[in-house]
Design a protein around this nucleic acid. Structure first.
Lengths: 204, 204, 204, 204
DNA sequence: CATGAATGAGCCTTCATTCAT
DNA sequence: CATGAATGAAGGCTCATTCAT
């Protein structure tokens, strides 16, 4: 009895990830994937319905993890983030692991979706994350109501955050380096936001 | 007659800018440009050698201005930026004008170059801008040597800056609003950077 | 100024008609049409959206004439056909001309639509013609109520009629020969129907 | 074991018949047959050389019966058909049984052969049947020499006959209904032919 | 120069048949 | 024999670019 081999499926996906990552979706031809993976064109279509579904499978797991993360944030809706807490430190570690393990996929989602049916996804994620950030802001204002940051800048900072995630994964940094970079980023974001307190602004 | 020809050339470029901006480079067909501009396909090729050269012409002027700006920065190599100085304020105003007048083009350069021969340009600009920032940092360190920011984060902040430029121009903000946003951004960047001073860090 | 040439359009259609007629729709490749007509594949698609629309254009005019004929029948709803009348004789002549001028097209409609989006058309035409025949039957019954023919056989006779039209056009008969054949057919159908009168049947 | 193999062969054929009948030969994929029958694609090719040979096997038996019938007609070459004779009535019953038992196959032969190597068969059968009919006509003329029917119409009537056979089996008629329809048809053909006697014609 | 049809290489996808297990 | 994955030659259609008028 012959079965669809998980390693072939894996081969197609891993090859596709690399090619999409290198050349983008549109410029990656099915025949490229076939040549590089050694799997004949026709057989690729035994494992996937279309080029688009190959792309989706490339990012599927990562999307699910992101989704789960959002659901967890929903639960912690009313907690104020304390950057020194053990919890946050633990989460940061998890986040770094996630990023390291999903380097290419994060890139595909945020940089390479042009030409696919999933171009809308980055925007959707950013919006959702924006709501999380927005909520956090209002909690902080509850205690200290001179806190003030425009939606526009908030959105940009979130975008920056994801962009850093993408970038930090495009290079061959060690886990330690990545950790340092993210810590630095968080320090930056934290004090940057602090600087937007009304009475500390440089420009008025 | 010369004027009429210039009109056609201009028409092609303006139409192309809008279409590239809306749909991206690859998904914009020459026939789309022809249809929207009213200029027959064949005649477009009397003015431009290729789709690629149309794209390049779309961003050419903006690239030149950016280039000029870099040359000016070279001259001010040894001056420390003072965010409260008249000079900086004047420059900010100029920058905002530049951005408003080059909304679409900036977007094309940083977001839409996929599929063209100019995909490398955003990276080149960022690197160059990075050198400017790097130099500024070292000047500041000369006075205050506990200042410290990693290359990675510096690059990201520059990227953020450009990204904000792009975003702020993708929406229909008034000049005043744009000014406020950029001020907020500068406040943020300034105090964020300040937070990276060694002895102020949250995480160590 | 260059314009789409009617002769090229005509060439594509005429070539397609012949190839569809010879080999059927599915076995006729766009490249076959291209080769036989001398028109490059790409240019065919300047004139038609798809293989299917080429097929439709092949039968379009003939369908319209058939449609018009049905509308005329609607008007004559309450007239009993008299096979000796001048009117019918005139109509027969018209019908023959129509058939001679639409040989291939009639074949395409009734024989060659497999694989197109127009497979349903022959059935539709037969049903419509069936209603016309049904109506005529009921008029005749009004005068002579022992007249009786089953829906099944009526449908078959109509089908036969169209089939004769198709066949008579697949060969190189002269107008005179076609006329004789159709007259013979009508004689046959007439007396055959007469034979179904209740009291004349062979089998009971 | 031998029995089991025969079962598989039978299963493939029966499944193929239904699918060919529903969707036509070309639109029926080997994988469709595999899915519906539950027999793996590879194993189908253990029993048949090609899709074409599957089709041929579908119609093989029916073709043989038709062939046998022709051979019998050869023997009765000089007998005039008497529609009231016991013999004919017996034959009609046999014919109906044959049709009922070969519904799908007759359809495959006359309607579904497009795309196979057996497209020529319907024509061959009609021609052969035509010779039988022709011979019968000349026998009848021997007794009554004003009998006259053109080759063309004769061929069409034969075609009609087969077509009715096909149609009558495409629906879910009971044996009794089928019998009635065929009787009606024979009445029709008989009196229709009678109407072609020279001196009874409507048109001259 | 203006016009838009002509050109054809190339892409995604299909599917009968083969073949390794 | 049984299984279903492997194979690869087409087919319909696209579109940047060229070219005849």
């Amino acid at each position: 009895m012959q079965i669809q081999k998980e390693d072939i499926r894996e081969n197609i996906i891993e090859t596709s990830k690399l090619l999409f990552f290198e050349k983008g979706y549109i410029k990656t031809k099915i025949s490229d994937i076939s040549k590089k993976s050694g799997i004949p064109v026709g057989n690729i279509y035994n494992y996937f319905d279309s080029k688009d579904s190959i792309f989706y499978t490339c990012i599927e797991n990562t999307l699910k993890i992101i989704d789960k993360w959002f659901l967890e944030q929903e639960k912690k809706k009313n907690m104020i983030l304390d950057f020194h807490s053990e919890l946050i430190l633990k989460e940061l570690d998890d986040m770094i692991d996630f990023i390291i393990n999903n380097k290419v996929e994060i890139n595909l989602i945020f940089n390479i979706s042009y030409g696919t049916n999933f171009e809308y996804i980055p925007e959707k994620i950013l919006k959702r994350y924006f709501e999380v950030g927005k909520n956090q802001m209002s909690l902080m204002n509850y205690k200290n109501n001179n806190y003030n940051i425009s939606n526009f800048i908030l959105k940009q900072l979130i975008s920056l955050y994801f962009r850093v995630l993408v970038e930090v994964t495009s290079n061959d940094y060690s886990k330690e380096e990545i950790k340092n970079i993210l810590k630095e980023l968080i320090n930056f974001l934290y004090s940057g936001s602090y600087g937007l307190l009304k009475d500390l602004k440089i420009y008025h």
